[in-house]
Computed example of a mutant assay.
Amino acid sequence: MDQDSAKQTKTRGSPALSGGHESCNTPVQEVTVGKRKSRTDDEGANREKKRRLDIKDTELEVCQEVTVAEFEAKYQQQYMLGAGGCGSVFAGFRRKDYHPVAIKHIPKDQVYCKHQDDTGREISIEVAVMMRLQEEKSGSVGASAPISLLDWYDLGQELILVLERPVPAVDLYEYILANKGPLPEEEAKIILRQLVKAAVHLQDNEIFHRDIKVENILIETGSDVPRVRLIDFGLSCFTKQETLKGVFYGTRWHAPPEWRRSRQYSAGPTTVWQMGVVLFQTLHPGEPFKTSSFLKNLLPISETLSEKCQDFMRVCLTQDPKERPSLKQIRLHPWLN
């Protein structure tokens, strides 16, 4: 999904995020193994139709309508950027200064993971994670790899997130397609170096993205060096890197071997596996990566790559999670340095 993100809060104030626990109510064995793209601009902009809220309480209905009006007064929604298992994303802009934004609509029944803050209120984990990241940012919007949350609205039947939208930018999936072949190894190294740094940053904040893949990595293309931005935290959670998880959230094709064997996985080793998957797809475009195919040696690592690059990929894709290096260890790998 070609999504973007942004900074700040919602109309009712920010929950305290220092504590709380993850509450994932709906198991999702696979949320988007690919992408569903929207129509192109030439086919016309996809404008959202106003949604009628089926609410019996009159006072609540008035409150919801005021919130919708507040959103529409502040932002102009334009064409669809993409859609997937966790909602639809539209391009847009902030009316007061024409600042580009991405507007993500998430039906409440597609808010798979929630977080309970210190007040006991349940909010979307995507909002909670992005607000925690925003709290610890020292710079302005766009200063770190994760896309920033600018605003959010709980409309009862759906959640609307207003996110930073870097321009120009394209997701890594499209970036690779535009290259019409594997990226040059040196360019892949630039991307992976930034991606590993971003993953370490999330780990330091006890955040597990759970679905890092080429479709969820945005590449800013406005300079000579591509810049990595991480998007779509809808399946993420707060966790210690070694805590075992018993329900898999993310892209089934990319599930680590330990999930296939024991139906358990943890944040640190899984994220390292995902670094290997992203690098593999960056340098071996064409057939989609599937863990099952890789384990059967049906997806060999290209011998045309440098020895250091091949070694980096192999260690990330080590089958045994206990033998797989940590994020901080792969950050020191000779190929990246």
Rank of each mutant, 00 (worst) to 15 (best):
L202W: 07
R331Y: 07
L295D: 00
I212F: 05
H105C: 09
L299G: 08
P146T: 00
K328S: 12
F280Q: 06
D151P: 12
Q78I: 02
M131N: 11
P107Q: 07
Q8F: 07
R324K: 02
D41H: 08
G92P: 07
M1I: 05
K213E: 03
L155D: 08
E72V: 02
E215H: 11
C309M: 01
A143T: 03
D54W: 11
S293F: 02
I55L: 13
E158I: 11
N337S: 11
E65R: 15
V214Y: 08
W253P: 03
I207C: 11
E307Y: 07
L81A: 09
Q281W: 01
A83F: 01
H21K: 09
V111G: 09
H333D: 13
H99M: 04
S236Q: 00
A73Q: 06
Y112R: 07
R121K: 09
D54M: 13
E72H: 14
S148Q: 07
G222K: 07
M80I: 06
P226G: 08
D224V: 08
G234M: 04
V31E: 03
S5I: 03
C237R: 06
G181L: 02
K35M: 09
K245F: 03
L17Q: 06
G250F: 04
I106C: 11
T304R: 05
L202T: 00
E287N: 12
A45E: 09
K308T: 04
R39M: 09
D4W: 05
S88D: 03
M80P: 05
I103D: 00
A178S: 15
Y173C: 15
Y98V: 14
E174K: 15
M80F: 02
D97G: 09
S18M: 01
D117F: 10
R165Q: 12
A169F: 12
R252M: 12
A83K: 12
Q76K: 14
L283S: 06
P334Y: 00
H254I: 01
G246R: 13
E185D: 06
A102V: 03
R229V: 05
G181M: 04
H333V: 07
F208N: 00
T119D: 15
Q274D: 00
L161Y: 10
D171K: 05
E59C: 05
W335Y: 12
D151S: 11
G139E: 03
H115P: 01
T32E: 08
E186C: 10
S144L: 10
Y153T: 13
E61Y: 15
M1N: 05
V315R: 11
G85W: 05
G276N: 10
Q241S: 13
W152Q: 15
S306I: 00
K308P: 01
V101I: 01
V129A: 02
P256Q: 00
Y249F: 13
S236M: 06
D109R: 13
P325Y: 07
T282G: 13
D154T: 14
S23V: 06
R229C: 13
S5L: 10
V228N: 10
